[in-house]
């Protein structure tokens, strides 16, 4: 019983929902601020993402006529739950290495696709053609990046022969080997699509689809979606660092922790820079891009990893 209460505490407060949400929202503030500075604007105050979430909560909830109300409202919750659990599973070994693991690499990999799936299902449940198009693009985007992303994630599996985070974390991957570096680059490109940030934001494409997948959402459900996105913005880089870059070992003292934080900020800066300098591509271009060159680099990373293991 106490064990379960501890689990609930972990998932709701630290390192789960509250922790991930706060850091995620702060990260989204960095993103917005940098974007604003790039565009010669002042940018929002520090607490703006938090104000936004509160405001979403007090706005009216609209459910489109003809929509499946339960699916429409439940979809955001499953996305939020998945990213929360994924984040908890990821952070546990980095905070308390003595605790047993809940899941492994494959579990987290699958959990991290659920937020995107929940957007797809939610958009379909809106019974709006524009949302349907957005949802279908999101689904095709999942298809595109999944192949190279899996290849990149297999590099540490080839190196360690294991899918356990404990074994993978023991190996300081990217810094040490060419295979790890290539895999990290591939994974960063895939992360951009997984976060549906420019140039891969065609599921919501404000200018042509007016929000696309989110077009019918308003109030708290939209707030939950935005919160989930902010949490993904935090969790995805952490996942990359954990799998390919030695992790952020909070338990090992200040220096490794700060080093991990620097890696995290570095990834965020790369993401924000790409988002502010690239134009949006079409979905077919994105698919060709991911299944073509990016997958090629993923395959090269895998081959190099095998060669290094000889």
């Amino acid at each position: 019983m106490v064990r379960y209460l501890v689990h609930i505490g972990e998932v709701l407060i630290f390192p789960g929902l509250l922790f991930t949400a706060v850091i995620g929202l702060v990260t989204s503030w960095i993103d917005r601020k940098v974007t604003a500075r790039v565009q010669m604007r002042v940018g929002p105050p520090f607490l703006q993402p938090f104000y936004d979430i509160v405001k979403y909560m007090i706005k009216e909830t609209c459910v489109p006529a003809g929509a499946s109300k339960f699916v429409f409202l439940a979809a955001p919750l499953f996305g939020l739950a998945a990213v929360t659990v994924a984040s908890t599973i990821l952070w546990r070994p980095m905070v308390w290495p003595e605790k047993s693991f809940i899941g492994d690499l494959i579990v987290v990999l699958y959990l991290l696709t659920i937020p995107a799936v929940s957007v797809v299902i939610g958009s379909f449940a809106s019974a709006n053609p524009i949302a349907s198009i957005g949802g279908s693009r999101e689904m095709k985007l999942i298809l595109s990046y999944e192949l190279p992303f899996i290849l990149a994630c297999l590099v540490p599996v080839i190196k360690t022969g294991s899918i356990e985070f404990g074994r993978i974390l023991a190996e300081p991957m990217a810094a040490a080997s060419p295979a790890g570096i290539i895999a990290l680059i591939v994974a960063i490109v895939c992360m951009q699509a997984k976060l549906t940030l420019v140039p891969f934001d065609m599921p919501e494409a404000e200018t042509e689809l007016t929000g696309g997948a989110y077009v019918e959402y308003s109030g708290p459900p939209l707030g939950i979606f935005k919160l989930t996105r902010a949490m993904m913005l935090f969790t995805m880089p952490v996942f990359l660092i954990t799998v390919l870059w030695g992790g952020i070992p909070l338990h090992e003292g200040a220096v490794p922790a700060v080093l991990g934080a620097v890696k995290y900020v570095g990834l965020i800066v790369i993401t924000v820079l790409i988002r502010n300098t690239a134009p949006r591509v079409r979905i077919d271009q994105a698919m060709k891009f991911f299944w073509g060159p990016v997958t090629l680099f993923g395959v090269i990373a895998v081959i190099v990893a095998f060669i290094e293991g000889l």
């Binding site: 998932v11 998945a82 929360t84 908890t88 599973i89 899941g103 494959i106």
Partner: peptide, 20 residues
């Protein structure tokens, strides 16, 4: 060879859903 402790994970999923 992997880890998937579905008991604690279920509690966590339920907890996270409850949070949402």
């Amino acid at each position: 060879t992997g880890k998937w402790f579905v008991g604690p994970a279920t509690v966590m999923i339920a907890g996270a859903l409850f949070g949402g």
